[in-house]
Design a protein around this nucleic acid. Sequence first.
RNA 1: GGGGAUGUAGCUCAGUUGGCUAGAGUGCUUGACUGGCAGUCAAGAGGUCGUGGGUUCGACUCCCAUCUUCUCCA
Length: 978
Amino acid sequence: MWIVSVFYFCHSNLCTTFDKYNNFNSRYSFSRNFSIYLTLSTTMKSQEIRDTFLTFFKQKNHKIVASAPMVIKNDPTLMFTNAGMNQFKDLFLGNSPIVHKRIADTQKCLRVSGKHNDLEEVGVDTYHHTMFEMLGNWSFGDYFKKEAIEWAWELLVDIYKIDKNRLYFTVFEGDAADGTPEDTEAFGLWKDLLEKNGLTTDKILKANKKDNFWEMGDTGPCGPCSEIHVDIRSDEEIAKIPGKDLVNNDHPQVIEIWNLVFMEFNRMADGKLKPLPAKHVDTGMGFERLAMVLQGKKSNYDTDVFSPLTDKIAQISGIPYKNSLDTQHKTDVAIRVIADHVRAVAFSIADGQLPSNNGAGYVIRRILRRAIRYGYSFLNLKEAFIYELVEILVQQMGAFFPELVNQQELITNVIREEEESFLRTLAKGIQRFENYVANSKDKKIDGPFAFELYDTFGFPKDLTELLAKENGFEFGFEEFANELLRQKERSRAATTLKTGDWVDNPSDASENEFVGYDTTNVDDIVITRFRKVSVKDEDFYQLVFNKTPFYPEGGGQVGDTGYIKNKFEQIEIIDTKKENNLIVHITKTLPEHYSDGANLYEAKVDSSKRKLTAANHSATHLLHQALRTILGTHVEQKGSLVNADYLRFDFSHFQKVSEEELQQIEDFVNEKIQAAINLNEHREIPIEEAEEQGVMMLFGEKYGNKPRMIQFGDSKELCGGIHINNTKEIELFKITSEGSVAAGIRRIEAVTSKGAANYLKEKIDTITKHPLAGLITDEIKNKITIAQHNLLQQYAKVSDMPTLNIISPSNGSLQIDVLSNAIADFTKIKLDATIIDELNNIKKAMLKEEEQKGKEQAKAIKEELLNEVKNSNGVNVITKKLTAVDAATIKDLAFQLKAQIADLYLVLGAEINGKPNLTIAISDSLATERKLHAGNIIREAAKEMQGGGGGQPFFATAGGTNLNGLDAAMEKALSFIK
RNA sequence: GGGGAUGUAGCUCAGUUGGCUAGAGUGCUUGACUGGCAGUCAAGAGGUCGUGGGUUCGACUCCCAUCUUCUCCA
């Protein structure tokens, strides 16, 4: 599940990949490296470019680490890794101890919006991407500008053999308003290097705050940076315009490839800068761009990172990729879009993020749909095809990113399902559009209509535009943009979150120690810092302690609640979360006596809630084991929620889990509970050892190198959550539902201990105490009895079982509404479906019977009434006050008479449930000829009985409150014909 | 998290200011006709109008709550 980790991690399956860099005796050893560089420098494949980078920094004593997952799980400000530094954020913020001072890696990143990127631009040009790799080297309080700059030169010029004449370097020019000086140090370092290599300082360019001052966010670590740009244009073009004039000018062939960030300040909420105690280096080099430069291409998409994909797309669509640099070349743009997006989507799914309708999942869905749209519009691909690219991607990148290989089937299925669903959306939208066009007169697509298509039905705006054009229609751009703006403002207003600065409470105490595995109660708590957070109109406070027993939300388990108190005050902790490795306690009020150092707080976790949560968490592990045992080892956890009330577990599996399998799973878990297995907690197990023991590890999770392992017999998982000490504390495990959440993903919900007991008790009570009397068949009685029996057997395993009165259905008459309620209740408790079906059948039969009775009754009355027809002025008048009939029967009667008697004027009165009811029917011809309107007539007549009514010209009904007025109302109705 | 839409026959969907005995097409059953591309014609079965409340003489229709599915924004 989740791990309370120090920063440094190594994923199980990735460790092997990285050993080669970290082991000096490997084939990438010192002595052989230079021969690799020399032989490959002219035709380096992308794999070798990546290897060379990592090996280079390995030789400079850097620890090589694996890419962190692209999807971020415990940072509220970020959904995806969008830069190499993300996984080191807590180090820069000082929330975690620094273990390795020098690190290098390649990091999977995703950018869809923000200052660096805009989804709608990707694929149009030749060098922006959604998903890309960022090569980076880091120094945490170790080396600074000198080494960073010199090594960058060495790698690019000496090893990768990039022509030094084509390189340019930017340095920060300073900003008076900010109080930040010009970066003369970086300037001097570049100057020395250039002069040593026979070049002059005209290769160094000064850049402003916007381009060369890097900030992590509105607040936090920041500093000047120095960028390396490369000019890959032809000699003729260079002769026309020198490269230095095109740097930072969005030229597709004069591009930034490496950014060296020198972090030396901390930005406060008031905008002021404070020097950082330790200076850091953070660099990022775009892998795909580097490949373009080294492979002598003019476009990232022409490198071997993308060409297998563009080839395959061309093959599927039958439209060749022309390697065009023209942004108007629609089919090439479409091929680039698809090649880019399939990478982003596939890697996200591999990291556990499925397409969905909100949050990170929605971003993934949008990316995928954009790819589908381009294929649909420009490559004429009207059926799912993107899923076919997964295989190519896996062949190409699976060796370095094993998560792709392991999740290939899931990725393929999910993408195909999404494609099919979106194609349906498109088909519906097109139909709607065509309706609109058919009914439109002014040859214009209104903005609001286009927006409705987009907003409500998910139909892409540019497709509407395209269709409009094809039909010779105008498109209401401005109105559309306005609607979109309003929508955005609504959303923004709903989610404004203001975060204040941390307020430090100086003390000698250490910070942020988690002691909750061993205790729920600590009495020497110091509040080390706090801040105010405002969401909409509500204020909250986040508190950080020196140490805490409160478990922060993570690994699917909800955060602890409880309180802290001293002799002055008691403050409720309403939730506990983790932000950048910092455990924050959320309260509604700010403690007032936090600075009185002598008055320590006592912290107490709500332990009954935690115990139930722990039982559910341990049960989740057993469930996981059961699934893998019974369904197969393809089952992998895809999501998990554990709280005091129930547990929810999502996992990969491609079909419905059958009733029998569910029963087996339940039995498996209950057997483990009966076996009373002790918890074996390995709090700091070396990851290698855990791996040897065959521990469950999850893709898309990052683990420390000494994670915590939770073991119940054969069930072994890396997990930072809270567990019970022996499985018998779970008492009973009961699955409450099984269903699907996405393509290839199933969800099981279950309850344990008290929750399971309550669940079963409710079930039994519902059945046994239901006033189901009389007309139930023996067969159903038996079924209910059997169900009771089964439940009782399971229930008997639970402590303090109440005694049950099993009532057998006695004689009496079964009412339809009683039966209806029974069906509703039984459905709610998910009673055996066959029982519910049978009850439903009985109900249907009874309804039918009742309807039949009514019809027969109507027939009988009709015979009677046929003898009472009075002809007056050519009109056949029938009037009668009926008893013991219902509204449906009267209606039926009226229509029967109307069908049989010409020129009919029918007035019927009745008492229904103590209230008067009046019905008028008039033959159609009569109504037309004499301009009679039953609806209007009845409205008048109903006044006599304090009621109202209405209907059509030939049939109307009315009700009232005064029964005594019924006769008068009937008289009134008759008066219209006289 | 916020907005919009959606739920009616096995399936695809109509149902317009509350009252048209809840409809169409398709599928199904039965029968008749038939050398023609989805053969034709006729008859029939099939619906808790998502669920729970409320307003009303009367709710598929209006109001409130809730669930499903879709969708946009963050």
